[in-house]
Structure formats: C-alpha cells, structure tokens
Nucleic acid binder design. Sequence first.
DNA 1: GTCTATAATTCGATAGAC
DNA 2: GTCTATCGAATTATAGAC
Lengths: 189, 189
Amino acid sequence: MRRSSEDTKAVILAAARERFAADGFQGATIRAIASDAGIDPAMVMRYFGNKEKLFAAAADVDLRFPDLAAIPREEVGRALIGHFLDRWEQDEGMMILLRTGVTNEAVAERMRGIFAGQLAPLVSKLDDDRERAPLRAGLAATQVLGMALCRYVLRLPPVAAMSREEIVDWLGPTLQRYLTGDVDGHDTA
Amino acid sequence: MRRSSEDTKAVILAAARERFAADGFQGATIRAIASDAGIDPAMVMRYFGNKEKLFAAAADVDLRFPDLAAIPREEVGRALIGHFLDRWEQDEGMMILLRTGVTNEAVAERMRGIFAGQLAPLVSKLDDDRERAPLRAGLAATQVLGMALCRYVLRLPPVAAMSREEIVDWLGPTLQRYLTGDVDGHDTA
DNA sequence: GTCTATAATTCGATAGAC
DNA sequence: GTCTATCGAATTATAGAC
C-alpha cells in the first residue's frame, strides 16, 4: 500500500503509543510496533531515527489541568480527581509514562518535570504560603497516581470496579484537604 | 573461591533482589546479577533453573501487617501507613513487585493476591458491613502504593523530602477515613 | 562447586534495491 | 515510499571440562 508521509508517520505513532502503553519501553519492540502498524520495521527507523526518539514522540503528554484558582475553593479536590480520571482515559500518554517511568530514570525525570511544570504551579496559586505549595502538590500526586496505578495498571478488583462518581466522592475530600487544609482537615485560607 | 551450597545460593538471591528492585525483570540480567554476586552466570542457572524461578524466589514478600482490630480504632489509619513505610524500607520485595508488576501481568496478579490475602482480610475485621470491606481496603491501597510510587520510585522532590512523621500526619487521617469513615469522614462503627 | 565455550534467540540498526 | 537482507550486540540457556 502507498500512503503519504504524514499518514504513515501517524499510523506508526499510534501503534507505538499502544505498545509502549501496554508493554513499557523495553517490552515494546520496533518489530511489534511495525507489525501493528502493518508496515516494515525499517519504516519506523526511517521516520523516527531510533527507538528513543520514537518513544519521545509517543510519550508527549499534556494533562491540561484547569485553572484551580478559577474554581470555587471548596470544590478543587473533586475537580482535580475528576479531571485527572478523564484525561487518563482519553490520553494513553500517562499510562506510557507510568509503565516506563518506574524502571527508566530518564522517564522518571520527565514525570517529575510534568509534576513541577503542570501541577505544582496551579497548586501554588491556591495557597498564600508559597513554601508549602510543593508539599501540597506532592501529596495530591501520591493519591492521584496511586489511584491510577491500582485502577488502570494493577487492576485491583474493588478499585477497578468503582464508578467515576464513587472515586470522586471518596478521593475528593482527601485531595481537598491536601490542597487547602491543614493536617486536621481545617481549611487554611 | 569455594563456598557451601547454601552460602552461594544466598549470595545469588541477595544480588538478584537488588538488581530486580533497581532495574525490573527485563532490565535485570543474569549476567549482572552474577557479576554482583562475584560468581559465574552459569551458577545462577545451576541453583535456580531459569530466570523466572529466580525471580519467584526473589519476589517473595510478606508485609506482616499487624492485626488492625487489636489497635485502638481511631489510630488504625496512622498505624497502617507507619507500618507500611517501615516494611518498605526494610524489605526490597515491595520495590521489586512495583517495578515489575506494572509491565508483567503475572506479577500484577501476584500483587492482587497480596492485596486480597494480606490487607483485605484485616480491613474486613474493622467493618461490620462485610460488603464494603474490599472497597475500603482498595482505597487504602491506592493511597499507600501511591505514596511508595512517588517517594521511592519516582522520587518527586517534595514527597521524597518528607519525614516519616509528616507522612503519618498527612496520610493517617486519609487512611482512617477510608478504613472506618463514610464519604464525609464520619466514623461508621 | 566453578568456569569455558557456545548454541539459539531476539533485537536495534544499517545498506541498498525497487 | 516500501521492503529484503543482514550485521552486530546482547541475552537466556545448555553441555561439559576441571
């Protein structure tokens, strides 16, 4: 079959995202990706140079967090987990990063960059005490990523069976406290 | 050097646990493990048969959770996170499981077994409503594993910098609510 | 108990024909 | 734009000498 350059590249990239998301960096092979895309392995190299550059193109992620400061203050916890669940299910990028970041230091650094660049700045706008903002963002990350790990990666039965609403109801208050409360749960605005 | 059979096996196993914990299943090679142990790669095969059997021996983990029902009810949250942090830092087994379980279905199944066999039964003793116990245990798992992921694996700076006491203070109330409270945080004893 | 040699695969990457 | 052929490296695993 004969396709345009752009089409071929897009087909390869889509197959790569699926494979990296399913098998991680080492587990996903150029040959398997090419097979999924219905083309020759040499084409992958032609368009992306090497496996690392292909991964970099496939693992580009934008969480698109809304401006938390523009949301009613008492709803930021529920808004954060709700938005995160939506993004996770729409974009394979986060699955790729989680599956590869646990055994690849370069990807872990990339996740730290996403945390520092996309989540922490939003959280800092919620708290007048800028010193404490990174801690708040970090606590939120532990709960949000832990949910993704147990629900989508490990598939713990009771967690995988929860509805979106149940998750928001249970995790919302937790994130609300991490983002705006003190240790005992009182708001610190 | 000449060693006893038991010594050699123990040395290999210790090296294997370090390598699997650091690099995951595919990343850890028989050669590297043998090199760390100061012996020949063929010795690893001789004592453990193949790589999978070596992994099975290295990934054996017992979280040794205390009986939560024997702890004052209002302290189970803090007790759970405190114990988990201790076990994580004493036993490389959980790091091995987390680093490999995200890309290996067999290991993920093993983690589900640990969850169902070691955590869920304890939680069910806290709640008269047995129907809801698995959900409570699952919620606790998301927060506890998410903390381990961010602190020990991804090393998010603000999370890695927290002291043990800070973590217990912040996550204790969260786990308390997951284990004994309702959505709004009121105890349901 | 320890090691050498090597078989059998698999993978990333390159060269080049069409 | 697509594919064949193949190289070179790395890995698991085996056979067998000492």
